[in-house]
Write a protein that binds this DNA or RNA. Structure first.
Lengths: 129, 129
DNA sequence: GAAGATTGACATCTCAATCTTC
DNA sequence: GAAGATTGAGATGTCAATCTTC
């Protein structure tokens, strides 16, 4: 149990460190990536449900992404209760660089495991539901 | 990589959920456990180095543990710059219950893995340094 | 009344700046 | 000046309460 928690934390530190150099965090990148995947402006509620987190969290993340100039808020014409988040050109580009960086880190991660350990790890983690 | 992060987060949720019912968190329990292990009042700096975290974090944790009545701050007679944290009787008892709960969760965790997966998991996680 | 978003308050963590004491 | 602790600010999360719109 402890091995698992320690390994995950050190992995997260590596990820946050790499993304930090791009002016991103995993939380911010996740928002941007869900938006790129959707390929259309999402409401904040839709983003929250895709991130499996709470609405107020998304409100704050979008606040910061907007300050960063990566995202813009737009009123939804069809439902005046809703706000849609729109990627700026810089937001698209930053997401791309973040995703590239993430897959680089993922590659390093897998390289640090022997092939056998890799399959054993996946199998074991899946047993944990 | 993602399997590892997801598994660790869901494990943490289970731990925090169990400890939450005792009025504890993993962060608070870790402080209490380091204090029990030391078996003497530690300075906040000593606690920080044992938790491998930053001093200001410990200051805030001790603030909350003190509000909870689990810990008391005492002046260090030999060095007036230092503050030592002292467990209250309730703090000792709460730590015991938290540690018991944690080992119960750990037991469940290991039960949910086959013996082979368990050794494979440990081996794989150790390969990650 | 319910749904979407925000706000305020709190927990956890970090860093930088500050204050006291060595 | 350096070491111990605190404070202030910011990031990431949660929850409860509120406001607007449906």
């Amino acid at each position: 149990m402890w091995s698992l928690l320690v390994a995950a934390h050190s992995l997260e530190d590596r990820i946050e460190g790499s993304l930090g150099e791009l002016g991103l965090s995993l939380a911010k990148l996740n928002v941007l990536s869900r938006m790129v995947e959707a390929d259309e402006p999402l409401t904040l509620g839709e983003i929250a449900s895709r991130l499996k987190c709470v609405r107020s969290n998304v409100t704050q993340l979008i606040d910061r992404l907007e300050s960063d100039g990566l995202v813009r808020r737009e009123a939804d014409p069809s439902d005046r209760r809703s706000t849609r988040a729109v990627l700026t050109p810089e937001g698209k580009e930053r997401q791309q660089r973040g995703a590239d960086e993430l897959s680089r880190v993922n590659g390093e991660f897998e390289k640090s495991l022997s092939g056998e350990s890799r399959t054993a790890l996946v199998r074991a983690l899946n047993e944990l539901k």
